[in-house]
Design a binder for these strands. Sequence first.
RNA 1: GCACCGGUAGCUCAAUGGAUAGAGCAUUUGACUACGGAUCAAAAGGUUCGGGGUUCGAGUCCCUGCCGGUGCGCCA
Length: 579
Amino acid sequence: MSDPLVIVADLLAPAFAEVAGRRGESVDPVVRPSDRADAQANGALALAKSLGKSPREVAAAVVALLADSLAGTATLEIAGPGFINVTLSDAFVAAQLAGIAADDRLGVTPRPTEIVVVDYSAPNVAKEMHVGHLRSTIIGDALVRLNEFVGHKVIRENHIGDWGRPFGMLIEHLLDIGEAEAAHELSVGDLDGFYKQANDKFKYDEAFQDRARQRVVLLQGGEPETLRLWQILVAESARYFQEVYRRLEVRLMGDDNMGESRYNDLLQPVVARLHAAHLLVDSDGAEVVFPPGYTNRSNEPLPLIIRNSVGGFNYATTDLATVIDRIERLGATRMFYVVGAPQAQHLHMVWDVCRMAGWVPDEVDIVHVPFGSVLGEDRKMFRSRTGGSVKLSDLLDEAVARAGAAVAERNPELSETERADVARMIGIGAIKYADLSNDRVKDYVFNFDRMLAFEGNTGPYLQYAHARICSIFRRAEIDRAAARTVAPAISAPQERSLALKLLGFDAAMATTLETHSPHKLCTYLFDLAQEFTGFYEACPVLKGNDLALRDSRLALCDLTARVLAAGLSLLGIEAPERM
RNA sequence: GCACCGGUAGCUCAAUGGAUAGAGCAUUUGACUACGGAUCAAAAGGUUCGGGGUUCGAGUCCCUGCCGGUGCGCCA
């Protein structure tokens, strides 16, 4: 609870209740950021009408009640139509700052622990990972880190596409080219080639089609040899995905894989439970549920298909099973589906059916976290020159290569290994930050030059701000931990605004979590970095003779670096100490 | 036809119903024997897609129109 706005709201709330004639209750003082003070309370305007007074009268009454008790903490001033401008005292700001500096969590309020499932990434076996997976993977990973940081138990689930009709043709293609060759292609990441060959044969070769169809039947029937071949496809693909995750530095590990096939045993029970709940309806030979509120093109009720007309399960059935599994086995009270926006209707239908069947307790929150598309310079879906999807690993390669060239030019002193390391952090960080810093639901244009720029709201700029602070301590040979023991004082306006910004970390986290929007944290970190450079220009740290002032400013530097590094880490981005 | 998501400075994007809509990039002007100039200070740049409505107050909420994107029965 270090946020200045929250502090001010707490200070003012009792007086507002008193003036409203509702002593003991809570009346929202409507505290907002202000250009003219540390905060402004707008509550008087809202209250005036019901009290039959002018807003300024109400504001005056509030201020009168608080004048004494806030002496030394904050000054209040009535302005405009009835705003109360609040300015915190330097001593108070410094005291709050000392509080978060001594806190490992940097002032972020811990939440009551919940079990949170984050469903993200979800690549398909034997298919390349492309930019669509990039968004799900990066946003999902940030949500994992953010929720863990505030105290939740987070369960990562990677809903890999490892089951269904395509596996007939994939297994037959595997047999055609031989197990060893297939394993090789998949593990080195030539998934597109493998899938395309299989798909081409399926399109043009009728005999192959027949084999593929029979193979699907064998697979679903659990025939051992077919399962063994299927397992090769899954294992080799998973190995490749894991390599991409390692490079991306996301938290997903092999044991987070919860592919579609893992729910096979739950599909029959899902049908039975829907039947018992009297929700299953026959429609054109298929078993379906009609959740209210959805219509098709002809304005007729739209069903969720549980079982198709030949008795096969559908992806909706699997999705129902995952909800049950997450609630009943994992005990989740919160579930985030980091899945593209086009799936919105499908997901909501699935959840509606779960609620109709009574599987979702009231306290369980299921949230779709949709995201916009990655676009090319032509503002159409991002594609390679040949029109195919762009391999994620190729994008990572290019970002790291470009970052390496930039580092070599700007800081030739770094050793080769150090440069490679820094290039990796900058390149990967730039891609992640470019993705996360845009409003999640909006499309964005993928542009290497912009994301790798060292100016503006970019990953490299934030990393630079952090590295610059680290270099202060390195050059002066001062221990960061020692600097941390000093309580920073406020003597210059730039110190003050930096301090207030640092206190805002908690609020930035809160709004980021509430809206599942990492870009809000990005905006905060960028503002913080700008505040810091402003401070650093105006306030000499090492140059002066005043040792107390130096130590105070070093403490500010240290705290800034900690918040920057922590914030970047929550986004899944590393902060190098030199670059 | 229905539904969902977007539309804010030249460009890329912010803005929990609050005062004069903010940043960055690009442009222009300053600050360099530089605690890392990979920087900072400043200027200029706006009919928040149009039209209604609610409200003391609307970029934000409601209705409506336009433009763009996406999705709508047995694929996942």
